[in-house]
Every structure is written in C-alpha cells, then in structure tokens.
Design a protein around this nucleic acid. Structure first.
Length: 310
RNA sequence: GGCCAGGUAGCUCAGUGGUAGAGCAAUGGACUGAAAAUCCAUGUGUCGGCAGUUCAAUUCUGCCCCUGGCCA
C-alpha cells in the first residue's frame, strides 16, 4: 500500500478548515524552500516569510533568501523590508503576517508560512498573548549594569514565578522579565497566555537525516561564498551597517567580519560559519520535535514520516 | 645523526607519586515584544609503547616509536 502523502493530508485539511493557512517548518538547509514551492503550487498558496533574518534588506545570500527563479512565480511576502540596523520584533511580524494572511484569503488563495523562526510561527499559530511592553533601551541599559545574581534576585523579589523559570545565567530573559515588571507593574508570567487562534493552521515539517543535513549545511556555506557572500558583507559595511546590528547577526556575518579584520583565517571563518549553522539547525530540531501538531514529511517523496528525523 | 620541546577526551591544551580536568565540538533540553538570539544539562579517556624504581606511576628513570624546532 502506498504511504500517505503530505498532499492528501493538506488537501483534506483545506477542505474543512475555516480560515486556513499552511506552515512549512524544519531546520535550516533542510529543503524547506523547494518543498514549500511544490506545495504552494499544488494548493494555490502565497508565501509569507517567517524567518527573522530574511525580513532584512540587503541580507540576501547569507540568509539564504529564495531567488525569483526558485519561486517559480509563487508570490512571496514579508521579505527584505527592514533596514539591517532596525530592531524588528515578533509582535510587529505577527501583525503584518496576520494582515497578509487575511489579504491572501480574501483573494481566494491560501496563505503559507515558510521560514525557520519557531517563535514567530508559534506566536501566530498559538496566538500568544504577549505582554504589551515594548523593548526599552534605557531600562535594558540600566539592567545590563547588574550582575546575573543581582538580576535574578531582583526578579525573584518582584516576579518570583518568572524567576523560578529563568536560569540565573540567562541575562537576556531576566532583563526582559524585569523590563516587563518595571513598565507594567505586573508579572510577566501573569500577562502571558494563549488566545483562541485567528486562523486554522496545519504545520508541515520537513524531515531530515542529521548526517545529510550537516553535509548540506557545510556545502551551502561554500555555495554562498561562490555566490558572493563576501561581496554582500562588504556592501553592508559600505552602507554603514555594523557588527551587532540586528540584520548583521545572520550566521556567517560575524565570522566574515572577523575574517575581514584579520582576527581569524579564512579556513576558520568557513569552519566557524558551518558550525554555528549546524548548532542552529540542531536547536531548530529541538524546538519542533516536541510539537505534536507538526506533520513530518520526507521532502524527496512527500510521504508522511511521523518523525523529524529520517 | 646531535640537541631541545612535545606526545593526556573528536580538537586545543591544563594537571597530579595514590588510575585525571577545562574550553571548543558532540548529544539532549528550555524558549511569549532581540529568537540565525539567549540559556541549561551530559566528560572512562590503554594520560604514545615497553621495561624499571616504588606499597602505588599518567606523574620519576631508561630504552623505543611519533611530531615540531634548531644544529649538522
């Protein structure tokens, strides 16, 4: 008997879902993009970017953005619209993505999220209620002066429930929780929750073989170099963007900058870029593995695999 | 060939007369306005080989092998 295919599953879902959208998830370099195009063409979808790096202008090669040829005419949205030195957050992304999804549905087409940022996808599919406190540079700057221990103790005084969940060394999480409390005078934990989703989503996960994935990542770095990665990084510098800017932390850029400054050799730069990308792919696998909503499929055969790894 | 410095976890290296550790990697995990971010957990490996000294050697001694440097 022929194994069930992801297309059957998606078709069935789309027949009954109210305000449906599809999401294609999986680790970087897993073949998400090409799989998404095949599915998009089959179900008349338009793609909404859910990758936190591909939103940036001028960061094309390093962030592995889809090219017009690869898109094969499928419309793509929310790419390349943020300046690389601008801070852009989940909340803003979700607002735009929801609006875009509505527009696509209005046209009688199906919205499809594609991109590797798990937080973004969960924010929309689970419809998180996110504490309404925007990031505040001044507060963060003040908090940054404190030691890990001081931060944790401060949080434990004000929002013990959050403190319990955040490790003392995780300064970033501690700072955010404190920022929320300072601004809203209410605990972070008290303001979080899940609302009823605005859309019905079907999450499709690209299954991978770990060894092959790592090889693909290693190879993709060389491809990027051939396609002008260094030129792109130099252009970004010429435009005035700096190390540490939000758009400048895409894997490969910090390493390329170190190489350009002579801090590391070219070999080390390449090896390091491959490594951070592999580390990231592993974190992505961890993120999605536990999510029971995901329907995993083999991107070569489109058969359902029931597992993130083949 | 001679002299010197080394050979310890996948890699780079620390260390001790009572059979070993750190960083990185790797693996697992967390994740609600920075998320390609941030953070947590997990370290048995003939301590190059053989022999000797010793109650005890990875640690001391001798020989051998290998690597690097200098001298011929």
């Amino acid at each position: 008997m022929k194994k069930e295919q992801i297309f059957d599953k998606a078709g069935e879902f789309l027949k009954t879902a109210k305000k449906p959208f599809l999401a294609v998830v999986g680790p970087t370099a897993s073949g998400k993009t090409s799989a998404s195009i095949k599915i998009a063409k089959k179900f008349n979808c338009e793609v909404i970017n859910s990758d936190s790096r591909q939103i940036f202008k001028h960061v094309d090669i390093v962030s592995a953005k889809i090219t017009p040829e690869e898109a094969e005419g499928v419309p793509h949205h929310l790419f390349s619209f943020v300046e690389p030195d601008q801070v852009f957050t989940v909340v803003e992304w979700r607002e735009m993505a929801e609006k875009m999804a509505e527009d696509i549905l209005d046209k009688g087409k199906i919205p499809m999220l594609c991109g590797g940022t798990g937080l973004y996808i969960n924010a929309i599919t689970k419809n998180f209620s996110i504490p309404a406190v925007a990031p505040q540079a001044e507060i963060r700057e003040e908090l940054e002066k404190m030691t890990n221990q001081e931060l944790w103790q401060e949080l434990n005084k004000k929002d013990p429930e959050s403190a319990k969940k955040i490790h003392e060394n995780n300064r970033r999480y501690l700072v955010r929780a404190l920022e929320i409390f300072e601004t809203s005078k209410e605990a972070k934990s008290a303001q979080e929750g899940i609302m009823s989703p605005k859309f019905e989503s079907l999450i499709l996960g690209v299954s991978v073989n770990r060894e092959e994935l790592y090889e693909r990542i290693n190879k993709r770095v060389y491809d990027m170099l051939e396609n002008g990665l260094m030129k792109e990084v130099k252009e970004l510098l010429k435009m005035g963007y700096k190390k540490g800017d939000p758009g400048m932390i895409s894997h490969g850029i910090p390493e390329a900058l170190d190489y350009l400054e002579g801090i590391i050799s070219k070999e080390d730069f390449i090896a390091k870029m491959q490594q951070v990308t592999r580390n990231f792919a592993k974190r992505q696998l961890t993120w999605w593995r536990r999510d029971e909503r995901v329907i995993w499929f083999n991107p070569a055969t489109f058969e359902i695999t029931n597992s993130p790894e083949i």
